[in-house]
Design a protein around this nucleic acid. Sequence first.
DNA 1: TAGATTGTTAATCGATTAACAATC
DNA 2: TAGATTGTTAATCGATTAACAATC
Lengths: 224, 224
Amino acid sequence: MGIVKERYKMKFAKLSVMRLFQYKDFLIRAKSIGIKNLFSDDLAEAMGTTSTQVRKDFSLFGLSGNKRAGYNIDDLLEQLNELLGKNEKQRVVIVGAGNIGRALMKYSGFYKEGLEIVALFDSDINNYNASANPPVLPLESLYEFICKYKIEIGVIAVPYHAAQQVLDIMILAGIKGVMNFAPIALKSPKDFYINDVNLKLELESVAYFVKALKMEQEEQTNDV
Amino acid sequence: MGIVKERYKMKFAKLSVMRLFQYKDFLIRAKSIGIKNLFSDDLAEAMGTTSTQVRKDFSLFGLSGNKRAGYNIDDLLEQLNELLGKNEKQRVVIVGAGNIGRALMKYSGFYKEGLEIVALFDSDINNYNASANPPVLPLESLYEFICKYKIEIGVIAVPYHAAQQVLDIMILAGIKGVMNFAPIALKSPKDFYINDVNLKLELESVAYFVKALKMEQEEQTNDV
DNA sequence: TAGATTGTTAATCGATTAACAATC
DNA sequence: TAGATTGTTAATCGATTAACAATC
């Protein structure tokens, strides 16, 4: 138990943690088609990374394999589940029932990862649907709901001018971390985790690098 | 002209480029309320970063200010527009007319950044709508459409089992870079840019760090 | 001028990659 | 055993941060 706790460190990079979740997803699929063991090479190939990266990640989190047979999928999955928290379910609320909010809501894979989206909240009365699963509730009931069900994770999928307000309510009600889609630098206490996801910037960066690629190719052509 | 070309380098990190787009958005808003000049400190504050970071980013891309008056918004915007390509419009196709595809489609801010979403494609006949703006077209017409309009940027918002197929068509038709929402390591030529966005992993990582925060706090309590 | 700010160089930090010893 | 694989240490790479000279 002490060892497990020891492993939970904030210092771990988001990217390492995300890769762990990816390994886990792949292992589940591999297991479902009857595979029992895997080498770091196999995992690396499937994920588009290197075997060194895989072993480094595992080593960082204290996951170990076997020098002859690689990694036993059952063992690894058990450790990953404990580490990534499949066992204790974590409940999530989504604020904003637009396309982004709905996209996450519809994703069915969270439940088996220990995440449960328990409700959406919206300010538009036309979107309310208390009997849906998950229900879409009025924004006014957000604070009470979070308190009542002791929710700790939130998703902010509202327009940017409403985001800080929503976050403030969440913080007050006891949420400990959010995924934020609003394009704004939110203010929060330092023991609060914010993961900003800005889809506009992600697409714009693609446009930039496509242009950069073209420039490079033109330059090479000119050099000849 | 040579100088501008020189600035377009693949080596620049995605994060720096994304920050440039953010600076630009903020500058546009600042300008719209009548501000003429800004210090790196002001920009940093608005973006939740540091003035050193701002100046470093600018320096990297050859953007300069003034030791007394900071940065002139008009000048800076002009340079950023040239650098980030507001001038030559780039057209984008989105494949997958689900919630993610629609979320991007509905976003109205792309046009003024030089990006134009010209069409969505879907395999479900119920989603077709050729007269919408942008139109939703059958997947079968993707290849022809890309060729005809010389599209260079794509968004892959389809289920993971269809993603590689869609990408292969895109590559064949002349697309140079994509934003990929499918949770799969796509294969592509090396002069092709892929920006993977995995919303599931982003949310799961929040769950992890919330748990990690709690563990740390418990540990501190125990230490007393 | 004195003070404030930029722009750059150097230092630090962190993540990835390479090298390789251990060992099954 | 010989060969293959893990796990770790060291090297590299890249990005952020600190320090500070230049200068308006």
